[in-house]
Design a binder for these strands. Structure first.
Lengths: 340, 340
DNA sequence: TCAAAAGTGTTATCCTTACACCCATGT
DNA sequence: ACATGGGTGTAAGGATAACACTTTTGA
């Protein structure tokens, strides 16, 4: 009795593991930027393929890729998700075209990395890009984005209407309402991936058309033009990985003290608040935010002050990193706001 | 300018993707069981290797493996984590020995599946096993488990003491205290994986010795004997995947209504509470639990009663599944308890 | 009648949200 | 003086955790 009876090994078919990193950092006042590498007309994430002989772990391989391609050393890293579905694995140019029958199957493992402050890089092909370029509808800091009602809602309704079957239409509309906060539904900032996937399914993400053509074996260059309200497309499935990273980060903020990985050794409470706002895309209530930070006990005043603020000098704080190995720590519960 | 400059494809080396499922269901009164397949002396999870040509998605492949090996159709499924580190990928017997230089590199993708009620199966090799067999220290329903202080704490302290370097010793002790709630530290039920990994690192998980021997190219049968306080070992890295699944489920309970995937169409509030307790391994305060469930509005009384309770008949409830597509829903915040 | 399990009422305490207000700096 | 951003006080409302208590069944 020798189970499990694993099915025969597919020795002739090959699998390639693609590793990609969403590297986040703050740039300037309240801008969260992601590290990108230029690939032809589009941006992509730092990435590479795992070498089953040379690489000991995924994480070590990934760190090497990021440093090679961008010149940065990353600190905090966590795995996001492994995508294995056919048709979305649009391979990079170097790997040959996906249409061929003996082309390797590409499995894509995404990672999230956080580093304090986005320094400029000397690599010509590497650059920091505000994530709002890729997901304009995710930024509610200036109130509900107009693109939601002006572009996305009508386009989704049109797509839903042409589906076959009453039930399918209703289900699609319900999904759109829930995810994109239409008809008074509340916004859930964590569902970044679900929103992007709905747009992809509806053919509103520029990558969808490219993948459809490639699946049919047609010539399909990376999309060049795109509707700005629907965000800038990325190489391969990198925008999906970026969406996964942003979603994870937005969720994790609330139960683990990860924001501090994006801040330097000393920061003001406003810096902290701007960072959280840049990630969640939502404005926070200043006074209550400060009280909440105080209650957590995660930060400690340094008695030094930042005079560059334009108003009253702000006290500088530091993250009490020693708590991580001493006590169980949760993140920042976010005081919401009805009015600006 | 054609970046990213992905490093050369390792065409001669091969990668095999192993898919494994942690299938959870309730059995009897307050017992959460995981679906296992017997593999020699040890239990393993239903699993198989992904066929890059034949399988369209990971999830479809996984569902097929579970049905083939156990006869069950699973419903709710979510991906857990992808493990790629060398040395932990102890291959199954069928796949040849891992010591050979040209053996395929095994990457392990874990999944979590939930089904209502664990029916018996007719497959000889498939069986339901209470998860407490594998992680006895995770069950606090009867109070703090004695094994923690009697076996685990001394063993971890002994291991820590022989590490080289004052700092390493202190760090190991701090980790042990935090994870296993020693010296008055609070218990965090979600850190199932971290606890198992610490035990593995300290050589206290039976799988550790097996993997060390295999890494040295030695003969290493699956462990047969083991210390009951340290849990029953599993085939390959399956206990690590099970730990990941339990951790994910314990966390997810609190922010998504997933418990109901483990319950039938009609259940009493006590059934619901026993299910949550069986997963989290912690006793809950009855009255406050009921109030909390009521507040969420996730369930609806059916006006029917269960007379089999042994006391006053309990009202039957159903999960208002329709909420999932109508409104944003969160899970059950768990009212803790100091005293039994 | 009693044990067992279901289910209700009440209260102190803490957290959340919101409001109004004062403080220290540069121009 | 006043604009700008930093920082405090206070109070209503809701959630949490704990207490004691009543109700309905089977043995």
């Amino acid at each position: 009795m020798r189970a499990p009876p694993v099915n025969p090994l597919p020795l002739n078919a090959s699998v390639v593991i693609g590793l990609s990193a969403v590297v986040m950092a703050m740039r300037g006042e309240g801008e969260a930027a992601v590290l990108t590498v230029r690939a032809g007309p589009l941006a992509g994430l730092p990435s590479g393929s795992f070498d089953p002989v040379g690489h000991r772990t995924f994480e070590l391989a990934l760190r090497a890729f990021v440093t090679e391609q961008t010149g940065f050393e990353i600190g905090y890293v966590e795995q996001l998700y492994t995508f294995g579905d056919k048709g979305r694995d649009a391979p990079l140019a170097d790997l040959g075209d996906g249409a061929g029958a003996d082309a390797p199957r590409i499995v894509s493992v995404g990672y999230l990395a956080l580093t304090p402050v986005a320094e400029e890089t000397d690599r010509l092909a590497a650059d920091w890009a505000n994530w709002t370029r890729f997901f304009p509808w995710e930024d509610w800091r200036g109130g509900r984005p107009a693109v939601l009602d002006e572009v996305i809602a009508p386009a989704l309704r049109k797509w839903a209407a042409q589906l076959k079957g009453e039930a399918a239409v209703e289900q699609a509309l319900a999904r759109a309402r829930l995810l994109f906060a239409l008809d008074g539904a509340p916004w859930n900032e964590e569902r970044v991936l679900d929103r992007y996937e709905l747009l992809y399914e509806a053919g509103l993400a520029a990558e969808a058309e490219r993948d459809r053509r490639r699946a049919r074996g047609l010539e399909a260059p990376e999309p060049a033009g795109f509707h700005p309200a629907l965000g800038e497309p990325m190489v391969s499935d990198h925008r999906r990985i970026l969406a996964t990273g942003l979603a994870r980060l937005r969720g994790k903020l609330k139960y683990r003290p990860v924001v501090f990985e994006l801040l330097g050794a000393a920061f003001t409470l406003s810096d902290l608040q701007r960072t959280v706002e840049a990630i969640t895309g939502a404005p926070l209530h200043k006074q209550n935010f400060r009280r909440m930070v105080e209650r957590t006990g995660l930060v400690e005043g340094l008695g030094r002050f930042d005079v560059e603020t334009g108003g009253r000098p702000a006290e500088l704080f530091r993250f009490r990193r020693e708590l991580l190995s001493t006590a169980p720590v949760s993140g920042l519960s976010l005081p919401s706001m009805r009015e600006g």
